[in-house]
Design a protein around this nucleic acid. Sequence first.
DNA 1: GCAAGTGCTTTATATTGTCAAGCGGTGTAA
DNA 2: TTACACCGCTTGACAATATAAAGCACTTGC
Lengths: 139, 139
Amino acid sequence: MTLAAPTQVAALSGAAATTAHQPGFCPVYRAIGVLQEKWVLHIVRALLDGEKGFNELARAVGGCNSATLTQRLEHLETLSLIGKRTEDTHGKLARSVYSLTPAGRELQGVIQAIDMWAREHLQEDDTKADHTSGCASAV
Amino acid sequence: MTLAAPTQVAALSGAAATTAHQPGFCPVYRAIGVLQEKWVLHIVRALLDGEKGFNELARAVGGCNSATLTQRLEHLETLSLIGKRTEDTHGKLARSVYSLTPAGRELQGVIQAIDMWAREHLQEDDTKADHTSGCASAV
DNA sequence: GCAAGTGCTTTATATTGTCAAGCGGTGTAA
DNA sequence: TTACACCGCTTGACAATATAAAGCACTTGC
């Protein structure tokens, strides 16, 4: 959906009525709810760069504690945005590898939009060295 | 991002080199840090729909407590993403009105990307009526 | 006067994220 | 064999953040 002028005008004049027309589910509201959770966008961005192991991912996002990362990954897996496979090593489970599902990969559009916006509008912070995860290749 | 076409990869490599020349700052990482704060994306989306008063905004985002909203608005104002004006009423200050700055309005691209992704990939939740702020017209 | 609404501020409490330690496992080198 | 590095989590104590509730000074309308 695009922000066409007519739509915008209609929105300005009948927001309440418009809301009443579509009670119940709002995709973008729900999506924001998911994406605004701490670390989610970082996780998505890191995995857009390629599948990753658990600790590798934690480091790639700039350092997320394992408890929260576990919870986030489980939730994203429940939402079918990421998938997890385990690499057998000599018959024993030894390594988990996380990757984005096709639906998850589509979030590239969101990350890209953020990146484009950031490059245009965010000022460089001179005071600290911000260690980042694959900044050179993430986008 | 490695997902890009070769030509784009080359272009991005150039951007990467630029980043490498300036260690420390990663625009998208920082932007994600800002946007992932609770309520921020909701606030941006609500204000894309037009300027709003404090309580009006709180309701529009689905109900944010005033302490957090105050903090968020102050931070976004510091980042020059939103502006605030006060409406004088008979010589007394009575009403604050918040709106997006031009830079803030550019976040429409991000909200739009989220919306497009959500419509394509998020399942409708049958169990609850999610009351939202101008769902049909926000983007 | 009262009611409804405004824009916050404050405090106690609830919720979320982190730190540190740890477990059972893998692989490599001495 | 031991020591070390790394893995993928789990757990409990603690820190940080968000919320609920109450409230203030103000406005408008009846």
